[in-house]
């Protein structure tokens, strides 16, 4: 794979190499696409074809095409990046691309979301949802220790009642709703 040949500047000192990699971090995306392609291809090729196949085209055909296309795109994208092509980062109303990215915030935000996914089955939506909102707001820089949790609790409880009781979309109440 062309993806692996990303060190034409082996001779550079370590810092230079690191900044080269940082500059070309898009190669990571190419690698990811290649890995995805291999995954899809492996899955397609290891399918057992005992299944009663209807028609001349089996379930392997499309995954095989998609897998090969993924490898192809990974290669072409690698070539594009090495020739100096760059994906333009998306802009938006609240996006400031002039400052360096704060990946720590992203990680913490993902962590908070993960926490909600784990907790929702244990403590129910009203509590896990409130923690999700408060946690996310905290991570994003809101530090009002009375207003934030109050808004979180009110929002979560109101959402629960509206969805569960008014709109007929069930959400887990958890032990808290058992008590109330």
């Amino acid at each position: 794979m062309t993806t692996l040949t990303k060190a034409p500047e082996d001779a550079l000192p370590p810092e230079g190499r690191r900044s080269w990699l940082k500059e070309h971090s898009e190669l990571g995306l190419c690698a990811l696409l290649a890995v995805l392609g291999i995954l899809v291809l492996t899955d397609a090729l290891t399918m057992d074809d005992h299944f009663a196949q209807r028609g001349p085209v089996g379930p392997q055909a499309v995954p095989t095409v998609v897998g090969i296309a993924l490898l192809l795109v990974a290669a072409l994208l690698t070539a594009d990046v090495l020739r100096g092509g760059k994906g333009e980062a998306e802009t938006g109303e609240d996006v400031d691309l002039d400052t360096p990215a704060e990946w720590r915030t992203v990680l913490m935000l993902a962590g908070v979301f993960l926490g909600n996914a784990v907790l929702i089955g244990i403590v129910g939506f009203p509590i896990s949802g409130a923690l999700l909102f408060w946690g996310a707001a905290y991570v994003l820089g809101s530090r009002n220790l009375t207003r934030d949790p109050l808004i979180a609790a009110a929002l979560s409880l109101a959402t629960y009642v509206v969805f569960n009781n008014l709109l007929g979309v069930p959400l887990p109440g958890g032990p808290l709703m058992g008590v109330l």
């Binding site: 908070v112 929702i120 949802g129 999700l132 707001a137």
Partner: peptide, 29 residues
């Protein structure tokens, strides 16, 4: 609207929406 609330709210309602699809926490992952 303060931005932390806005994006916390987006995460919150995204979680509600995904969970409501089939009622399984796995969907959140």
């Amino acid at each position: 609207i303060p931005r932390p609330y806005l994006y916390a709210g987006i995460m919150f309602f995204a979680a509600v929406g995904a969970y409501a699809v089939s009622g399984e926490a796995l969907d959140l992952f």
